[in-house]
Design a protein around this nucleic acid. Structure first.
Lengths: 191, 191
DNA sequence: CGTTCACCTGAACATGCGTTCACCCTTCCG
DNA sequence: CGGAAGGGTGAACGCATGTTCAGGTGAACG
């Protein structure tokens, strides 16, 4: 038997689960594997978590909250710098936590995380909208529809990450640069 | 017993499989359900397909080939029109075949369809690159890196579809317009 | 020492899956 | 008529999973 204090056990389980979820996604993850990697028994998991869903939700909540906090800090920057940093943060995150990001895409459907996801996406949307509004007010950006444009920027960013997961592009940061330039200047030659 | 000619049975199975795969994805699809919907027995499926993989591959090959053929026709159009039509074709397809598109994203990983996918993506990449090269030659576009820009356009498009699947945007065509405008003109106010 | 309680165990259960295979019809030919 | 061939059946097999629960085990306390 492997004896520990309750909070420590919980932490160890969460860490193991983080690894396994990242490697195998939600449905691919087995309690047996999490238990094995946490060095605890199958039943031991159920002392701390009602079920697999709860384990997943607790982890996801932590990750999203941490992401949100980091990006919120960009509000203090100048619009152009904020936009660039936001792109970089997203892409760096995708590179460092590829497994987790992949999981969220592959299992975007899961009913029980719907609320969590909506909150997260909306916060990102609000942030970019505010950056654009700020830039428009300062005369840096054109008189665009900020909310709509914010969504376009965000989904393009997510598309880059998707292509990275697909193995279609390898140097993600380079494409972040490209996207940034394209978004600012467009491809059409001025009249 | 439900007696038919072999080719007809095969076709019916493929159609049923198309439905079920679109609804439930690859791993979520059960042979039992495909059989039920095709009005044939479980064993009957295995007369025509070695296994679930083969069923999936045959379907996917058909869909990708049809998509490719339709988009290849855009080569005849003027660059701006071609770009716009390409965006529209992608988005219309995502709207009409949401289930299938969702499946390909959720299960992008599947080892056995890797080649098929790579071929498909590369053909799209080549098409957009050629449209951009054409536009650059005609002086419509700036002197951009066509290959890189093509990829940016494609992943942004895929990002829009992803956001649509996520339920983050509902009027996909509207965002297609936005993306097109943004890609052409950018958001930065001219100096 | 005995008791208690927090912590832990893993075989067992219920479920669901892809796949196999021994067998069954129906048609058609000689 | 016999029998071969094409088309079809679904119970059974092997395996994997989330979850339960009857029962350990160690440490702390009186």
């Amino acid at each position: 038997m492997n004896r520990r204090k309750a909070p420590e056990s919980k932490k160890i389980i969460l860490e193991a689960a983080g690894e396994v979820f990242a490697e195998r996604g939600y449905s691919g993850t087995t309690i047996r594997e999490v238990a094995r990697r946490a060095g605890i028994s199958i039943g031991g998991i159920y002392i701390y978590f009602q079920n697999k869903e709860e384990l997943y939700l607790e982890l996801t909540r932590d990750h999203m909250e941490s992401f949100r906090k980091h990006t919120e800090m960009l509000r203090d920057k100048e619009p152009l710098a904020a936009l660039k940093s936001l792109i970089e943060y997203h892409l760096d995150y995708a590179i460092k936590k590829t497994g987790l990001v992949s999981m969220h895409i592959k299992e975007y459907d899961l009913e029980f995380k719907k609320n969590l996801k909506k909150t997260f996406f909306d916060s990102q949307q609000r942030l970019v909208t505010d950056i654009l509004k700020n830039g428009a007010a300062k005369g840096i950006f054109k008189d665009i529809n900020c909310k709509e444009t914010a969504e376009v920027i965000l989904f393009s960013l997510r598309g880059a990450i998707l292509d990275y997961l697909f193995g279609q592009i390898s140097d993600l940061k380079k494409y972040g640069e490209s996207l940034y330039r394209l978004m600012l200047n467009g491809i059409r030659r001025a009249a």
